[in-house]
Design a protein around this nucleic acid. Sequence first.
DNA 1: GACTAAAACTAACACTTGTTAGTTACATAT
DNA 2: ATATGTAACTAACAAGTGTTAGTTTTAGTC
Lengths: 190, 190
Amino acid sequence: MSKLSKRQEIIQQAASLFRKRGYSSTSVRDIAREIGMEASSLYNHIRSKQEILNELMLNVAHSFSNGMQSIKEAPLNPLQKLERLVSLHVNITINEPDAVALIPNEWIHLETQGIQDFLSLRDQYEKDFKQILQDCLDQGFIKPVNIELASFSILSTLRWLYSWYSKNQNVNVIELEEEMKKCLIQGLAK
Amino acid sequence: MSKLSKRQEIIQQAASLFRKRGYSSTSVRDIAREIGMEASSLYNHIRSKQEILNELMLNVAHSFSNGMQSIKEAPLNPLQKLERLVSLHVNITINEPDAVALIPNEWIHLETQGIQDFLSLRDQYEKDFKQILQDCLDQGFIKPVNIELASFSILSTLRWLYSWYSKNQNVNVIELEEEMKKCLIQGLAK
DNA sequence: GACTAAAACTAACACTTGTTAGTTACATAT
DNA sequence: ATATGTAACTAACAAGTGTTAGTTTTAGTC
């Protein structure tokens, strides 16, 4: 029986509310009410509302970065790496759907340091992603295609996966991964 | 020299701010400052902040619905209709990028009537989209593929097109359309 | 120049926001 | 039982929110 620390409970509840209503429309009183305490009591566990968002966004961003790092270093051909990237997205999305749901938009509410770190991780991730796709092209694994647009397209789908998953939670994870790979990569493959 | 009505100027500026900071983090005073008047003066032109969001979101939603209606009725085969849908998204995105950028997330801030209308338009649109993809499959225009996932994937890319466009505004529209079609449809085509 | 309607202004409202200060309850170790 | 540190509480703050009322300015018509 895993007992979350109060801090973690707060952060998780906040994630759920941020997802539903957005960071800005969620007050610390909303978060406190959900947990069953007064707003001011939250401050025994967190430093600020902003800190919650920061922790959420940077944790999930690091999950993606670390996953990318592993995949880059793995002894696989680029097409296999691409498939691994799909798995990475599916897994992180299923494990922390609320935090993942914040990625596309809520980063705008991060403040100076946090926003810098987040965007720098995101940019590096996209760069790595494109490189792997480019390697696929160079080594003849996929048809000639505009790399910019293709990577944009695949990443768009993967980023929105959380919304699809929230409507189809019954789906088998392995199956989902396979279908995603078929859908996103097979169309490109030679 | 097209002179926008004050009301339209307000709504356009609001769209730009809503996009940058989100509906909730944009105050009516922010909007007023951008236009160069006092917050209270806005109310000579609009009924409420909510009305602005409502008009923005439902206008753009109707643009998509109307476009879909035309395409459905056009004397084309389903694959051609799919291509037309890509054009539709590219064109609306380029014409009103700010309003389009609000679609994925800001609808959560619509209120009772508006949110109902918006979601009903969106659901119908997705249903029509899937049907056209299904027709492609039934008539043998595309490879066998999970329709749910394929339409989700294509729509994800088209929904996020605005963010890609904001970074690549120099691109030729016709070229963009062609590349999108190649990227999204050609992978599926038999 | 006087009249009128539209659209700007100032001032204020009731309410919500994130956060802090100060205090009390509670659990654990001695 | 006593002491101690953690975590809850109440109360309040300064700032910001959308919106309204009432007034003045502006622009066009007779």
